[in-house]
Design a protein around this nucleic acid. Structure first.
Length: 431
RNA sequence: UCCGCGGUAGCUCAGUCGGCAGAGCAGGUGGCUGUUAACCACCCUGUCGGGGGUUCGAUUCCCUCCCGCGGAGCCA
């Protein structure tokens, strides 16, 4: 058995008798008519049972159907101008495969807590369905961009022996009696693969055990991380800009209708064109202060600062050269001012904030070794990483893009929890 | 971890200045020849988050715990 004709494909079967397999999304009835809304994962179509023309057992079976019961419906595909998809099914036969009892998500309003408890069922709802399809399209566009531009996919390990950056809290697991940690970034391993392949990217889940409880945080999230040998910070910004323009353009090109169904105002997305404003951290701080923020040079932006700053622009902005003191140990210092790191964050507009973080890496053995020690990290754990600076060290750079934040931004969502099928949130790991 | 808001029917919520708990939806029954979160009528539904306290009486006031939501910090 293999699924046959799908609803998305129904236009090619006009005036033919077809059998569709799916679930009953909703039903409305009157004395002589049943309107079955059939959902098959590819779409929803209305199936009409007209009593005077229907077999008695078909009519009676439909009278007892419940929301989300599994059925096979046979009937003729006919053009119907009143239908939102232009077609409906004139039913001749219905087979009940499984009767659902008391499906909890009714076609009415529900609260987020209830829906998250029923996330395994919520995925069947129209809005969630659209969001996850757009997510899939975004991921496809990301892969296509790198695959078509000379990058090799070289994935990084998820189980790691030590903290990559030594800054954030990691999930610890037991690795045959030794502690191991779930990766929070493929960054360090990516530097090794870039020295082997030139242009690489990794794409997978990453884990942060931080007690973050905001609309922008998940404990488990997906990140794509390109890394390029012989690339400096300016090249890194060129790449991030070109990449984001491509991804947003691809989604708009193929999924604008879905975004409209999510009531996304796509005008901001249509502004995602080169060039993105490139603002130094120092200038951004001055700009924020003139806008009323009490931020001081040297501290990282707060959520409000990011929102205030991004609202000044009509497209993503790239803020570069943050104070080295607030950045990771592997960031290369700006030769013209060693208090600054050669790094960049891309901030999405409309208050969505940081979706990309990256920069140029320290390629000098002695400087990197000192930085590891300065950050209080164990040198022996980074021996292999230092090796990359002993054997043909070259300038290199890269960045990481958070998939869920990108999906939230493109879809215009309030919270990242709807951008992944089963979000892992603070102290909430069910379903 | 901290700050704020909340927990009342299966769901979304109202309400009780301390005195028999109430709407809509869902579910059930009946009605309606084209519905689009269909509509109309009737019926059914409660540990008012848990524990303790004050009180003649607590769902309501107080304390405490649990859970949820929003935000901060940190980050993608």
């Amino acid at each position: 058995m293999y699924p046959g004709i799908t609803i998305s494909d129904i236009a090619r079967h006009e005036d033919q008798e077809v059998t569709l397999a799916g679930w009953l999304y909703n039903m409305r009835s009157s004395k002589t008519l049943h309107f079955l809304q059939l959902r098959d994962g590819s779409g929803i179509i209305q199936c009409v049972v007209y009593k005077p023309e229907a077999a008695e057992e078909v009519w009676n079976l439909c009278s007892g159907l419940t929301q989300e019961s599994a059925i096979r419906v046979t009937g003729k595909v006919r053009k119907e101008p009143r239908s939102s998809i232009g077609y409906e099914i004139a039913v001749s036969k219905v087979e009940l495969v499984h009767q659902a009892v008391d499906y909890p998500i009714t076609p009415k309003e529900h609260g987020v807590a209830f829906l998250m408890e029923n996330r395994h069922l919520w995925l069947r709802s129209r809005r969630q369905h659209i969001i996850l399809r757009v997510r899939a399209a975004i991921i496809k566009a990301i892969r296509d961009y790198f695959d078509n531009n000379g990058f090799t996919l070289v994935d990084c390990p998820i189980l790691t022996p030590n903290a990559c950056e030594g800054t954030t809290t990691l999930f610890e697991t037991d690795y045959f009696g030794e502690p191991a940690y779930l990766s929070q970034s493929g960054q360090l391993y990516n530097e090794a693969t870039a020295m082997a392949f030139g242009k690489t990217y990794c794409f997978g889940p990453t884990f942060r055990a931080e007690k973050s409880k905001t609309r922008r945080h998940l404990m488990e999230f997906w990140m794509v991380e390109p890394e390029v040998a012989w690339m400096d910070l300016d090249g890194d910004m060129d790449l991030a800009e070109d990449f984001l323009v491509y991804v947003v353009g691809r989604v708009l090109e193929k999924h604008e209708k879905e975004l409209a169904e999510l009531e996304r105002d796509v005008s901001f997305l249509k502004n995602v064109k080169k060039p993105f404003p490139r603002i130094s951290y120092t200038d951004a701080v001055k700009q924020l202060q003139s806008l009323g923020s009490d931020i001081q040079w040297g501290s990282d932006f707060g959520g409000d600062d990011e929102t205030i700053l991004t609202r000044q622009y009509d497209r993503p902005i790239m803020v570069h050269r943050y104070p080295a003191a607030v950045k990771a140990f592997y960031m290369k210092k700006d030769p013209s001012n060693p208090d600054l790191a050669l790094c960049v964050d891309v901030l999405a507009p409309e208050g969505y904030g940081e979706i990309v973080g990256g920069g140029q890496r320290e390629d000098n053995y002695g400087v990197l070794e000192a930085s590891i020690q300065h950050h209080g990290l164990p040198l022996e754990a980074f021996k292999w990483f230092l090796d990359l600076r002993r054997y043909g060290s070259v300038p290199h750079a890269g960045f990481g893009l958070g998939v869920e934040r990108t999906v939230a931004w493109i879809c215009g969502l309030q919270h990242v929890r709807e951008t992944i099928p089963f979000p892992r949130m603070l102290e909430k790991i069910w379903p």
